[in-house]
Write a protein that binds this DNA or RNA. Sequence first.
DNA 1: TTGTACGCGTTATCAT
DNA 2: ATGATAACGCGTACAA
Lengths: 353, 353
Amino acid sequence: MKSNRPKSRENSDTPKPVNIYDVAKRANVSIKTVSRVVNGLPNVSTATRTRVMEAVDALSYRPNPFARGLASEQSFLIGLLCDLPAAGSGYMAALQMGMLARCRKDGYHLIVESLDAENPNLVQVVQALVATSNLHGVILTSPLCDVRELIEALKASHTPFVRIAPDKPLAGLVDVRIDDRKAAYDMTSYLVGLGHRRIGFIKGPADHGDANARLDGYCKALAQAGMPFIEELCVQGLFTYQSGLDAGERLLSLKKRPTAIFAGNDDMAAAVLATSQRFNLKIPQQLSVAGFDDSLVAQVVWPRLTTCRQPIEEMAKVAVSILIQRPTEDGASERLLDHELVVRESTAPPGVL
Amino acid sequence: MKSNRPKSRENSDTPKPVNIYDVAKRANVSIKTVSRVVNGLPNVSTATRTRVMEAVDALSYRPNPFARGLASEQSFLIGLLCDLPAAGSGYMAALQMGMLARCRKDGYHLIVESLDAENPNLVQVVQALVATSNLHGVILTSPLCDVRELIEALKASHTPFVRIAPDKPLAGLVDVRIDDRKAAYDMTSYLVGLGHRRIGFIKGPADHGDANARLDGYCKALAQAGMPFIEELCVQGLFTYQSGLDAGERLLSLKKRPTAIFAGNDDMAAAVLATSQRFNLKIPQQLSVAGFDDSLVAQVVWPRLTTCRQPIEEMAKVAVSILIQRPTEDGASERLLDHELVVRESTAPPGVL
DNA sequence: TTGTACGCGTTATCAT
DNA sequence: ATGATAACGCGTACAA
């Protein structure tokens, strides 16, 4: 016979890569039919289909992802791009959990990549990344999702991507987020409702997505309550614990110190807790503290933090779903998920002693 | 000319997948030569080499990973397998950071997969995973790294893997860890040195790698100090914050309560801090608390935790390095890294008021 | 030092 | 409903 080899290995000292030919032979059909069955395509008689399926798991055959990728441009790989400092946070961990769960459901895998938003040749890095890993889609988190050149590079590479909690909406992009403005508004209103009249606020980094919206919400709530926006009560933070320490110090050193402090995220709120210990302030009797995210720390500190829960895992799942379905090829879209106020022991009416 | 197609696209409405043929043509060489240059193989004159390299980045050519994988069995993918509950911890986050950094250095990518150690068909899941993703190597974390069937499955699949911080050494495996026993011994000795005579201990889950070694170290230190091991002072925990709450409660409810508590990890130590608030105990004046890991929480709580730092990122890097170099094809090996005692504000001599 | 030709395991086209 | 056969892009014996 001619050496027209339908492949298979006999010299088995190496395990035994079962391939589509083996299955075809065993089921007495062509490889194309096997392919159809494996990929759930129509036009196969139920008889052959079952016969093939039997062969498949008799041989415990798995399609080779490389061959598949090479032939079909499908990688089943979702890329998660996150900024270096954020990579270790509870927020990111929760995101990953959600993505993982959703990926698993459809046989996708998650590739994690940490980037440095400050890196001057960030674009190069990303280009190399998408080029060398053939991602099915990419998920961008803060603050990466607001870096213009990065977005342009991604667009140019024709890699679908969705942003989670971006700062500003941008033409033609698809975003997943909560209404940070409304959420911060709710929290501030809650504090006002408690009776607080001097409410401090610790901002997040100016380039950071949700941070600005939260500031807006804070302002709006004050305005609506007929309370003035007091410059000195609104200090800059960076979403890090350390920055929260500094911010807290500044707020608590004020001549007229606030009776409540609303921090832009939980890490900074936890820092305020620590700082108030140094100032010998009892929480919540002498000072109310609120955070944002409902991350792990919110429940680990004492007293536990009143905070605003983002449905982080849910957001992650939605983002992956969008990518998998490859919708809105061009049209922008925005998925707005619900937030939730979580009241714990760190807040109370002012002046209760 | 014959239709022996060196491929390339002219009808460019789709971007333009530059392939090795394009580069070859432009550099006036064969694809084999391009391949050699791209892969840094020898036997290429420096003249041609530079010519090829110019062509490469003139066209900004990137080898197609699928084709490469299909032809060479190289995936450049490292798999990180972690248990579901652990996935969100600071420990895992730190591990990832280290792995990411190391992977990047050699053009590898990190695929994260969360598994449920309790899942009865865990083995199936893992088999499917390695079969469908062609991992270059796999990293196992606690408690997955001590699940026998899992290890057997991995062995059978011929996927190289290394374990991080496993419980027991197993024949023929390669492990990366610190000396948990020694570390716990050091911490306990430190507390003894402070003058504590009743030292509580919160164990980690029995099936969890490092947990048992730490218990051993605790016992050894007591013995060496001529102190008895007191049953009621040693309570079970699960490495979770919640379990720490329970354990702390039990220890602090004792008739003769301990003057110091050494928790198996930081999360549980943080919980003890919270519980002692409820018992109105001043830390460290009335109770010393020590943790383990030096994770983020250790610095976020107040007072900050005295703890034992594991070089987590370093361990991660070492693990990846091992996988990349594919060493010790069969021989076992163990890399022992150094730990470090980090003394902060949560510990002090007993009875100082 | 350099090039030719084939194999890797799929998917897809186009007949049957 | 099913099958022969050509891509897909790269590595690599083997030849030159």
